[in-house]
Design a protein around this nucleic acid. Structure first.
Lengths: 240, 240
DNA sequence: AAGTGGTCTAGACCACTGA
DNA sequence: CAGTGGTCTAGACCACTTG
């Protein structure tokens, strides 16, 4: 170490983010190529002059980001197929409307008990069919249609739903606030508005609409499956 | 501790997942209501009989899941607005096609250098305009149109792109494999096919199509912005 | 200024899983 | 069965942020 000289060798304390970025840099510049096995955490720790747990923290992050894959005994490898990984937040529809500075509105359209049709049993991955509560409702923003939801709620898993006044409170809101889930499948696609949907959303037949389908379970028991058809112009953004 | 008796008090070793689940349970059953402040990590550690770092690991996970919010000095609080948080993987288009068991194909449609129009400068959050490489290309699955991409690549940030044979290798593939980014914005929406897009994707005018827009930067420098229009029937699924 | 979460360390043991 | 990642601990210090 030379103070006032040219090179100053300093004992730098590396944070786990530093380690992550340096390892990531090596993946990007080809030092570690796709499919390659990286050194063991312990060796990296020695190289970087930090504790193994610091390397572990860094590698955990790279693993979560989809950069590397880790296995006990198998070691750490650079993923062969790079992916863009993003996190999506889907809020309660009321909050989504209010966050846009609009006034939230809600209208119950239909409430029936029906046997679940095959397309929905498939989403739940159920063997046979059963009776479920079907809730059809419209969410509004400043009085304009915003999202139309067609929802099935399992009466076996969530019998309490029958005691909720679904004309006053949306099933969306009640379920998200009261029924935790352990599994959630999401599906996004575009569809042309059919006559009925167009009428409900006050748009033209054939308009391109974004659809969000969400199915949740608690353990293996189905909770709800909802097809939310959004009004034209709806966008999904990933959080920064 | 009574072996062979009724109650056996065992010194159980809690894992961070156990701690996470127990705290999560308290959020769900209302012990900790939305907006409430939770006990400090240290107090929870004492209560659960584990190290503070174990509680820290658990809370970090709950924080990532959007269940609680943590701030130094401010403590840990239950989020007021529950969200459904999901992780999306967007693979390279080639892999997406091949993972469906189809044969991947690629066709370069247009390659020009143009001044970036306002809608695209907005996506990049650029002050003025500049010349960029515009690449228009079609990805095919088993010979059928799969995704049409209209892409802008910054010649200032990525001059090497000019040396790549974009008729042989898609910009998608080359960029994902070679140009790391530090920021990625994603946007999804539905649009009706216009005449040109319908022709390219071999579908009818007005068909509902899912659009994926992705813009990436390295630091503050723009890399690329792409509008990927998918063929009818395209879906986005969250990984389990 | 003080309280609380964030990180680092060194060491130990556990739990997968590939050879 | 042996190698590697995963987790836990106890303690220390740091960094942010709020009262």
């Amino acid at each position: 170490m030379t103070v006032g000289g040219d090179t100053v060798t300093e004992v730098v304390r590396l944070s786990w983010k530093d380690v992550r970025d340096r390892v990531h840099g090596r993946v990007l510049d080809g030092t570690y190529a796709p499919g390659d096995r990286l050194p063991r955490d312990e060796d990296l720790a020695e190289e970087f002059g930090c504790a193994r747990s610091t390397v572990q923290r860094a590698m955990q992050d790279l693993s979560l980001s989809g950069i590397v894959e880790r296995r006990r005994k198998g070691g750490t490898r650079v993923r062969r197929d790079p992916v863009t990984r993003a996190t999506l937040d889907i809020p309660i529809t009321r909050n989504e409307v209010e966050n846009r500075g609009a006034v939230y509105g809600y209208r119950l359209i239909g409430l029936t008990t029906e046997a679940v049709p095959p397309p929905v049993t498939a989403k739940f991955e159920m063997a046979g069919s059963e009776e479920m509560l079907r809730v059809r409702a419209l969410h509004l923003a400043d009085g304009h249609p915003f999202v139309f939801e067609d929802r099935w709620v399992s009466l076996r898993t969530v019998p309490e739903i029958l005691e909720i006044d679904l004309a006053a409170q949306s099933a969306n809101e009640w379920l998200v606030r009261n029924k935790p889930y352990t599994r959630c499948d999401l599906r996004f696609y575009a569809m042309n508005a059919d006559a009925e949907t167009a009428a409900i959303l006050e748009t033209g037949e054939g308009a391109a609409l974004m659809v969000i389908e969400r199915t949740t379970w608690i353990g293996l028991d189905p909770i709800t499956s909802v097809k939310a058809v959004t009004a034209p112009g709806y966008e999904i953004l990933t959080r920064s």
